[in-house]
């Protein structure tokens, strides 16, 4: 078992063994965050740059804490995507980053493929922290970690992913990961937010994928209900009439959650719009693992940094 890639760009290209390696490694790192001194020297002298072209609090902080708990030096750079219009091209960005001799670059960008383009130009390990609507591999890994921790398995589970499927990199990465590990994923949301050929996203995997506009059908009997954030600006783009109508038709309420399995868990990648895609009762209810996801995010990101940057120390 090993993870021999230079980068973590997406889930689609990973094997089941690679995914399992990351999840198992994360398990061994989780305990560190429960100690009174939450720090190990594993990545001392390594430099991790968090390069975020999109606003993010949760993911950036999670990566920063993960790096610090491994004793790596982490630096945050926030950039506006408009740097391109100021004349800095992707190649300049890459060369500037390379000149700082980092060991890993965690990158978030609104354009799909930017981590892949940079990975081809840069020696440092590139970690995709979200590229447009393409992939968000660390989120899917922490989601899988959370499910596995609670349910003891992923194979055979019925997982409903509900909401703005079209614009969601979280949904795409989760579909790849969960089906690879044998889950049966049902994706649902308004038809305007279901991209074409979504059911063809996966190739020969253990699990299965179904796509439907009927939220109740997707939730019925589900072991896991994962809700996606709805962006307010989607209204002005005529994807749905109003947030009120959205919450009634597609939101997760206690009543709707009753359709799921009696021991179903509720997840959300955050940040949550209370009362829109998910009611406050559900967010704060006993089924909700939303804060566990955040906790596990640190352990999973520690594992990824360790596997990518700490390999020569092994």
């Amino acid at each position: 078992m090993a993870y021999n890639r230079k980068d973590l760009l997406g889930i689609r290209e990973l094997s089941v063994e690679e995914i399992t390696t990351i999840l198992d490694t994360a398990e061994s790192f989780k305990e560190i965050s429960t100690r009174s001194i939450k720090k190990v020297p594993t990545l001392r002298g390594k430099t991790v740059i968090n390069f975020f072209f999109e606003p993010s609090t949760r993911t950036r902080t999670s990566f920063e804490i993960a790096a610090k708990r491994l004793s790596a030096d982490s630096i945050n750079i926030s950039a506006s995507t408009s740097s391109v219009t100021k004349g800095e091209t992707l190649i300049d960005t890459a060369r500037n980053l390379e000149a700082m001799a980092p060991d890993a670059i965690v990158i978030r960008h609104s354009s799909p493929g930017v981590p892949h383009q940079l990975a081809a130009m840069i020696d440092a390990a590139i970690i995709n922290a979200g590229d447009g609507a393409h992939e968000h591999p660390t989120q899917a890994l922490l989601d899988a970690f959370t499910i596995r921790e609670r349910k003891g398995r992923i194979s055979g589970l019925q997982v409903a992913i509900i909401g703005d499927i079209m614009h969601s990199r979280v949904a795409r990465s989760n579909v790849h990961l969960l089906t690879k590990l044998g889950a049966h994923v049902r994706v649902a949301g308004p038809r305007t937010l279901l991209p074409p050929d979504y059911e063809k996203l996966i190739e020969d995997s253990e699990g299965s994928l179904t796509v439907s506009p009927r939220v109740d059908d997707a939730i019925a009997g589900a072991d896991v209900v994962m809700m996606l954030r709805i962006q307010r600006e989607r209204m002005s783009e005529a994807f749905f009439p109003s947030l009120k109508e959205y919450s009634i038709q597609y939101g997760l309420t206690m009543k709707r959650l009753d359709l799921a399995a009696s021991d179903a868990i509720v997840m959300h990648p955050g940040p949550v719009n209370r009362g829109v895609e998910i009611s406050s009762e559900v967010v704060d209810g006993a089924s909700s693992l939303i804060l566990d996801q955040v906790t596990n995010g640190v352990a999973v990101r520690m594992a990824i940094l360790f596997l990518l940057v700490g390999s020569e120390a092994q």
Partner: peptide, 8 residues
């Protein structure tokens, strides 16, 4: 399929 896969 590819626009969906790549998020473009």
């Amino acid at each position: 399929r590819y626009s969906t896969l790549l998020g473009l």
